[in-house]
Design a protein around this nucleic acid. Structure first.
Ligand SMILES: NC(=O)c1ccc[n+]([C@@H]2O[C@H](COP(=O)([O-])OP(=O)(O)OC[C@H]3O[C@@H](n4cnc5c(N)ncnc54)[C@H](O)[C@@H]3O)[C@@H](O)[C@H]2O)c1
Ligand SMILES: NC(=O)c1ccc[n+]([C@@H]2O[C@H](COP(=O)([O-])OP(=O)(O)OC[C@H]3O[C@@H](n4cnc5c(N)ncnc54)[C@H](O)[C@@H]3O)[C@@H](O)[C@H]2O)c1
Lengths: 226, 226
DNA sequence: TCAACTTTGTGCATGGCTTCACAAACGTCT
DNA sequence: AGACGTTTGTGAAGCCATGCACAAAGTTGA
């Protein structure tokens, strides 16, 4: 039986990483009432080459019309499906300090299939506080199957030293997708996905390039490499 | 004249992206009093292959000792130098909402050469408020050269719709390294580096893989495609 | 209906990154 | 001093991603 190519075929990681950007731009175009775009236009808006955009989209199936371009709504829907955003993804945040609070109250979170269903923190001073109508609970309640709704994605926003222990708990509760904001490398069993967002790393990469630019300017005078 | 290989040679982007992680792990080892590590040990701690670690480090120069390994302190220093962390990087944050506040009060920021020197927000209700001893100012003051210290790195934490205008202002003020938390693609002139941190993108990538796992388990039973 | 024009989808070449595998280099022990 | 075990640094190979270029496919207009 023929199923959705998006679900059967292998989509390269590099492509998957760009799909959210395509989707965001398409959503904006849809809001503006734009009915269709060419690969050239969409690529320019996203900041990639048109050939790359077409190759990326070809992994999802063949949704363009030659001589015309892509229907904005259709393409947005197909990317949403490929990413799994047509389903509902219940999210839990562990660690309700500065960052946890910002994440919990971030509205952009909810827009696309993601729904915060639980907030955890072990600090007694925080337990019971309500953020966006959800009460903060001690992490121990995660183990009590009757106390929490199903959770698909766990977000770790605790200090680094607590991250591995929190991660183990999440994995123990059957969560196999984790977004980690703590500067720590997490060990997880096979089958569990961890992605890390690290502010310091990003700053350090910027610093590296800034240093290069400064050295190039200083050593080479005005001329910079082509 | 012979200069530091780290500064003269071309270091691949993929390597640069991993150096901060190596550095963080080395710093932890140094704190624990570990004098030296082999590439095998360090790679295991970071979660990469030892061959990759060695190749990455080879781009900085030859700081290992065959039969022994790497001196932790020396290697940490060399990575710091390669990344430019021996210099001081003054940072400004624009947009002091939920995220901006979290970033400004984040202590891990300061640890490695980064120093927050200015906070901007156009909301009159926020202007004047002090966060970690720095007063929030209107963004217009960025143009007044006498009002602000030099800034190397600009962090954008405003809503997406304001991001491009804020970015233009930062670039206009001579800032050529920008960290963007808003879900928007920024246009900048050549020579300006922009890195984006996007929570939604990360969640969507996790959702994609979670969907794959669910489909593999549901549709194919136990057997998964080779 | 048919020709001219536009844009997609993709085979192929190119370049960069990762992994393997091993010689060279170093310390240690006898 | 010399043999032995360990670990680095790196050529070579394989792999993946990117970019080019064009045939195929569709639209538009006469
Ligand atoms: N604040 C930022 O801008 C920022 C930026 C990048 C990364 N981070 C990282 O995000 C993490 C959180 O940062 P923050 O500024 O919110 O820190 P924070 O100290 O304000 O908050 C951490 C919270 O985690 C809770 N916690 C600690 N151990 C716990 C456990 N075992 N179980 C449940 N809760 C636990 C604490 O009670 C606290 O409320 C840190 O790892 C930090 O390095 C923060
Ligand atoms: N809060 C989060 O957890 C989170 C996570 C990921 C991404 N983001 C993104 O980060 C950005 C900020 O998020 P937030 O939750 O802090 O939003 P927020 O609304 O709480 O804060 C935005 C701040 O920017 C200021 N601002 C708006 N326009 C400005 C301008 N032109 N010049 C200077 N200041 C201006 C506003 O006054 C406000 O204080 C948004 O783009 C959001 O999508 C937030």
């Amino acid at each position: 039986m023929s199923a959705d190519p998006a679900l059967r075929r292998e989509i390269p990681d590099a492509t998957v990483a760009r799909l959210p950007e395509y989707l965001r731009t398409l959503s904006r175009l849809a809001e503006d009432g734009v009915p269709s775009v060419s690969s050239e236009e969409l690529a320019a808006a996203v900041g990639v080459r048109s050939a790359q955009l077409r190759k990326d989209l070809s992994h999802l199936g063949s949704y363009g019309v030659r001589g015309v371009g892509y229907d904005v709504e259709t393409l947005a829907l197909e990317i949403s499906r490929a990413l799994g955003l047509t389903e509902d993804w219940p999210v839990a945040i562990v660690g309700m300090g500065n960052l946890g609070h910002a994440l919990a109250s971030y509205s952009g979170f909810v827009t696309k299939g993601f729904r915060i269903v639980a907030l955890f923190d072990d600090d007694p001073a925080l337990v019971g506080e309500r953020v966006v109508d959800i009460a903060i609970r001690p992490l121990a309640e995660l183990d009590d199957k009757h106390a929490v709704d199903p959770i698909s994605i766990g977000v770790i926003a605790t200090p680094a030293q607590a991250a591995q222990a929190v991660c183990d708990r999440l994995v123990g509760a059957g969560i196999s997708s984790i977004l980690n904001f703590a500067p720590a490398v997490l060990s997880v069993p096979a089958g569990v996905d961890v992605r890390r967002v690290d502010l310091s790393t990003e700053l350090q990469i910027l610093a590296f390039h800034a240093q290069r630019k400064a050295l190039a300017a200083g050593h080479l005078g005005t001329a910079v490499v082509s």
